[in-house]
């Protein structure tokens, strides 16, 4: 039952899932780190990215344009939500923020259900990445291999923005002490809007590139939201590298346990989170004092 080809294949699946979780979680973690708002609509952003990609694909027939269009759409949706709704909740208790983002998530899911119905939609993989590739020792769907590369490139782009640009400098400082960034002359209100937009874009991009390997449904973001939270807790709130590490760990845990018994994969994920919380409450790469 346990053979090498199977194990390697599952490790690969874990890598693909993990990279995707890392990308979604990095969006969630920079939003929470900078704005202090736990965005429970983040799963809905992921789902919306898939649908936006599907719509653009219907118009253009181009997968690349579908992904770009979905990303652009989610930046705008994120920025508008911040400007119109989230902004009014910074000074309010955490429960209010959780309730309002939870509510926004429901509204987005139901709007999508109303517009597209509950039946699942599919977005085909691009022609250059369809079919199956032989890796010598095993056969693997080509698009899943491409997906790992695409998501890795997106994470690299996010890294570049965060660590090599002035905007990234402001965001990293804002994660630590937004009030001091304001005192140093930067309009943090604008920065918050941009961060929420970028965070939503990370989820939307992930939703679009993941669409060819799943069926799109309005509830498609619910499960991923919970897994993403676990990733952020494991990696450390506000830490980009923590989100990447946590994502990869979570992906492999989900994948390897489902090889033994899929019923235990969620259990194993939460068990791992519990262990981290017991031994390192700030998360693997989180700064102490931000628990």
């Amino acid at each position: 039952m346990l053979n090498w080809a199977n194990l390697v294949s599952q490790l690969f699946n874990g890598l693909a899932t993990g990279a995707l979780l890392a990308l979604i979680a990095s969006g969630l973690t920079i939003i929470y780190g900078t704005l202090g708002v736990l965005n429970l609509a983040h799963g809905a952003m992921f789902m919306l990215g898939g649908y936006a990609g599907w719509v653009v694909y219907q118009w253009t027939g181009s997968f690349a344009l579908a992904v770009l269009g979905a990303s652009a759409f989610l930046v705008i949706v994120g920025a508008i939500l911040e400007l119109v709704v989230i902004r009014r909740f910074y000074g309010r208790p955490g429960e209010d923020q959780i309730l309002v983002t939870f509510g926004l998530g429901i509204v987005i899911v139901e709007l999508v259900r109303r517009a597209f119905g509950s039946l699942s939609l599919t977005l085909p993989a691009p022609a250059w990445a369809s079919g199956i590739t032989s890796l010598g020792f095993m056969l693997y769907p080509t698009y899943r291999i491409a997906l790992i590369g695409i998501v890795a490139a997106a994470l690299l782009a996010l890294y570049f923005v965060l660590y090599r640009t002035k905007l990234g400098l402001i965001v990293r400082a804002g994660i630590e002490d937004a009030g001091m960034v304001d005192i140093l002359g930067v309009d943090v209100g604008k920065v918050f809007m941009v961060v929420f937009g970028i965070g939503a874009m990370a989820a939307g991009f992930a939703g679009a590139v993941n669409a060819p390997v799943v069926s799109l449904t309005p509830d498609g973001g619910d499960a991923i939201l919970i897994e993403t939270f676990v990733v952020v807790v494991i990696g450390g709130v506000g830490s980009f590298f923590g989100a990447v590490l946590g994502g990869l760990i979570a992906g492999e845990i989900l994948s390897l346990t489902s090889m033994v018994d899929p019923a235990y994969s969620q259990f194993a994920l939460f068990a791992a989170m519990t262990l981290v919380l017991v031994f390192r409450p700030q998360g693997l790469l989180g700064a102490a004092g931000r628990e």
């Binding site: 400098l169 990293r172 001091m180």
Partner: peptide, 15 residues
């Protein structure tokens, strides 16, 4: 800013 280095702290202030 503890997560930024000395120079990043100064550059940020001037942005």
């Amino acid at each position: 800013f503890g997560s930024l280095n000395v120079e990043e702290n100064i550059v940020l202030a001037g942005v």
